[in-house]
Amino acid sequence: MTTHADIDRARALVQCLRGAVAETIVGQDEPIDAALVALLCRGHLLLEGAPGLGKTLLVRALAGALGLRFQRVQCTPDLMPADILGTHVLIDDLAGRRFRFSPGPIFAQVLLVDEVNRATPKTQSALLQAMEEGEVTVGRTTIRLDAPFLVLATQNPIEMEGTYPLPEAQIDRFQLKVLVGRPDQASLVEITRRATEENGLPLPRPIASLGDIQAAQAVVRELPIAEPLRRYAARLVLATRPDGAGAPEAVRSYVEVGASPRGASALILAAKARALFAGAPNVRRADLQAAFRPALQHRVLLNFRGEADGVTVSSLLDEVWKETPLL
């Protein structure tokens, strides 16, 4: 049962985490908030951006501030699923020869999957069960992952050669996708100062306990959203489908696949987390708007015509937002 103290602590935790990560990462407020949202919603985050923008550093800073077990996987085309999940190794010692399971990096609480689109689909699919169900099956053994389990993946949209775009099923597992933008001049000056003058970038010290995080996650789940707003979110998701009710003409023309029901849940959960960040006791339309694009933009896939015409998913989502009535 959530109490006022839980709400206050959850909000304070968010503020502290945001401040701690911001001490390491400069000028990336939106990715930081998105990572916190994914954490509190028990979701996963896909960061997309050019190299050198601090994606990996952000994840490392967040993991450091959370004080959770952190693992990192650098994806390459020859990466095998066993390299992520773990494998049975033959042990030959005084006790005899036997197989023993050696867990892979997925057995962590915060997992950084760097350049996830460089891994083969087979390897990428190794993450499917873990991300959705929080457990891993190796051989005939299913192993439960420790909570919280947060996957933060990065991908580089520029170097497409030798990459394997995430399949729909895989990408739908990510609650949010955030485009990591380039820092402005002031941020760049600060980044260079820290990188060149200080003795390395300091990672934040753990400021949260597992209990705090789980309590905050519970608060987010209980935060109320009114029925009309829930219907509104559903209409928004339906409007991203080319055959959905209320879909704008551009969506009908350029979209191959729209958002899934999982997308609707992700939208509402993200809106709840945003409301908590803002200190609101309820979900507002503004919260839905803030969560709309991160929650849905990776779930809308353009068709050939859309790709050929240079249409962007962001512009389509903007149109969906404008065309969908609240009442």
Binding site: P224, A226, E227, L229, N282, L326
Partner: peptide
């Protein structure tokens, strides 16, 4: 929306 209450009324109805 008319009063600019931040969807408090409908949320109150919800809870």
């Amino acid at each position: 929306l008319a009063l600019g209450t931040g969807e408090l009324l409908c949320s109150l109805h919800e809870v």
